[in-house]
Amino acid sequence: MGNDIVDRRAVDAAGKSRDARFVRRVLTDQEDRACRQSVDPDQYLWVAWAARETAYKAMAKSWPDISASPRRYQPVFDDSIGGQNLRGVVQTPKTPVYILVMIRADYIHCIGQTRQSPEHLVWGVERLFAQPDPAGNHDPDRQSAVVRRAAATRVAACIKLPAADVGIRRRQDQVSRQILPPGVYIRGVYSEIDISLSHHGRFAAYAFSIS
């Protein structure tokens, strides 16, 4: 599974749909045209981005060397659920990823997983800062620390343990030395709880699955 969040007012997100070269590297030609005709091109761009990034994160857990090229990921949305949420599926170089996009005034958050619709996942969004940083320099280490703590607290609540018993940290593959996605540790022991963390601008988000 994966998740991604975009702060819509971050200096590197607001107005980005006017950056034609960036858009052409992210969207297909058909999406590019639709984006330009959209009533909210920035929203169109970042929904498509978050969907792709979510799918890539979900895929990279099983295939660490899978392509990260955005145009190799093709989201298709089903807007029949209406409101501020979009359901869809992202075709990837491997298997499809089923996604749910939450579109809010301040952020766009996407969760997704292979095999089935992601509605049963547990997810949350934390606001880290009241205002966007005009220079875009929110500290990524602080963002990471906050989202790990928030996610660990939520995991602990779900499995009815004290928050102090749950930790989230990155691992390193002992053979390839490759840095792996964050994992959940319970009383210091790595668990199979699948978790995904993301942060951007004022926001941090997490999603996890306890089967």
């Binding site: 960036f22 992210v26 990034e53 955005p70």
Partner: peptide
């Protein structure tokens, strides 16, 4: 560096 900024770097 976040993934979207990597696209900017390539450009």
């Amino acid at each position: 560096v976040n993934s979207a900024r990597l696209v900017d770097i390539i450009i």
